[in-house]
Simulated assay, not measured.
Amino acid sequence: MKALVAYFSPTGTTKGKSMELAADIGGDLFGIRPVQAYSAAGLDWTNPHSRSSMEMKGNSSVIPEPAETADLHEYDTLFVGYPIWWNRAPRIIDTFLRMEDLHHGEVIP
């Protein structure tokens, strides 16, 4: 089995856990990064006007695009790691899965 651990980790927590998983299973790592990095203010979930809050409200004009895509054709298994925002996956995960032609409905954590 050839596995890829793709992760989104704006604060580094999910990256650490993804690195552990990849090491445990002998998989490759791929960081899902937005074209524009998040600032601390942009991640402030208590501010309804922060970048992350606006993205999660579903405004299509602020949906983040990943900076790059992964070549998934060489993998048998894909693990996707991400923090939980507003009880669901961050919007960049939806975008990543659509770009990879893997999105078939809402991402369920």
Rank of each mutant, 00 (worst) to 15 (best):
R91T: 15
E65P: 04
D101V: 12
G16N: 13
E65A: 10
G58W: 00
G42K: 02
W85K: 09
Y38K: 04
M56H: 05
G105H: 02
S39V: 10
Y82P: 05
P48S: 11
I84L: 10
Y75V: 06
A40P: 07
S61E: 05
I84A: 08
E100W: 03
H104M: 14
P90D: 06
S60W: 07
R33D: 13
A22K: 10
L102E: 08
G58S: 06
S50P: 07
L97P: 03
L72P: 00
N87L: 13
K15G: 08
W86V: 12
A70D: 02
G16P: 02
V80H: 00
L72G: 08
E106K: 13
D101E: 14
S53Y: 08
A70E: 01
E74G: 14
G27Q: 04
T77D: 11
I32E: 02
I25R: 15
K17A: 10
V62F: 09
R33E: 15
Y82I: 07
L21K: 10
T77S: 07
I108E: 04
D101Y: 09
H49K: 13
P48L: 07
T11F: 06
N59A: 07
T14P: 01
H73L: 13
Y75C: 07
Y75K: 04
F79Q: 04
D76R: 06
P48K: 08
N59S: 04
V35G: 08
S18W: 00
L78F: 01
K17E: 12
A89M: 11
H73V: 12
D28N: 10
S52R: 09
Q36Y: 08
R88K: 15
W86C: 10
M54L: 13
P34R: 04
A23T: 11
D71L: 10
P66C: 11
F79S: 05
G81P: 01
K57A: 15
L78N: 05
H73I: 12
G42M: 09
E74S: 15
P66F: 00
G31M: 11
S50A: 11
N59Q: 07
E55A: 01
H49I: 13
W86R: 15
V35T: 12
I108T: 11
E74F: 09
L97K: 10
E68R: 13
A40R: 14
I25E: 08
L43H: 05
E74C: 13
L102M: 11
R98G: 05
W85S: 00
I108S: 07
K17V: 13
R98H: 12
G81A: 07
A37S: 06
A89I: 05
E55F: 01
I63P: 02
L102K: 13
A37L: 12
A22R: 03
H73N: 14
A89Y: 00
D76Y: 03
L43D: 06
E100I: 08
Q36N: 13
I32M: 03
N47D: 15
E68Y: 05
A67P: 03
S50T: 12
S50I: 09
F30Q: 00
P64H: 06
S18M: 01
G27S: 12
V80Y: 00
L97Q: 10
T69L: 14
E20Y: 07
S60Y: 03
V35Y: 02
D28W: 01
M19W: 01
S52A: 15
F30C: 06
H103P: 01
L29M: 09
I108N: 04
L72Y: 01
G27I: 04
I84G: 06
P90I: 06
E55Y: 03
H103M: 14
